[in-house]
Write a protein that binds this DNA or RNA. Structure first.
Lengths: 99, 99
DNA sequence: ATTGCTACTTTGTATTACAAAGTGCTTTTT
DNA sequence: AAAAAGCACTTTGTAATACAAAGTAGCAAT
């Protein structure tokens, strides 16, 4: 018998971070407010999860403008993509194990 | 754009509970010590996660013996199977979304 | 000058996770 | 018979995590 969870990444256990990462896998970039609505969290809560992902080097921030309004967008890094793919693979292996 | 995590079950966010459930999906029953070694957790920690799963009606406990030694085994309930399958489906949909 | 928006940071609290120690029961060893 | 050990917890205490709510800085619109 083998441990089905040993290769899962602890950072991605959290649903908000998991959601952000999987959203960033298919969107070149997303801004703060769209992400906030998408995940249905408070702005403070989102900010802290984004900070965690950034501290781990999984996402990067880009502060820009739309017209004259500030617009902060987030995108996945190479390292983030790699780590997330490994996590997904671990999930798939776990799922494969139950079939 | 849609929320990739809305159908995930919060109880299964935790890696130990996720591991226990996915192990019980493919094993009719497992005893406490095997589960403890498999998940690599302390006995107290495992006991508390098992209690959470039991409180939610996802697993059931069977206290038995092997020869003369006590042997507590755990198995998945119908409800647990249903909820876990739904969680897996939600995960698969999320994964499908990133491809 | 006030209001509003964005993207936070700070503060405080509740929840969760965990290790370690303790417990009750039984069995095995000496 | 006494001591040690195993099982499956429960209890206790602590650290980490998650979260809401309020506060903040900078800029824009009214």
């Amino acid at each position: 018998m083998k441990n089905p969870i040993e290769h899962l990444n602890k950072i991605f256990d959290n649903r908000v971070r998991l959601g952000v990462m999987s959203t960033l896998m298919v969107n070149e970039e997303i801004n703060f407010n769209d992400l906030k609505q998408l995940m249905d969290v408070t702005d403070g809560n989102l900010a802290s999860h984004l900070a965690t992902l950034e501290e781990h080097g999984y996402i990067k921030v880009h502060k820009g403008f739309i017209g004259r309004k500030t617009n902060t967008t987030y995108s996945i890094t190479k390292a983030g993509e790699k780590s997330f793919k490994e996590h997904i693979e671990a999930l798939e292996n776990m799922i494969r194990g139950i079939r």
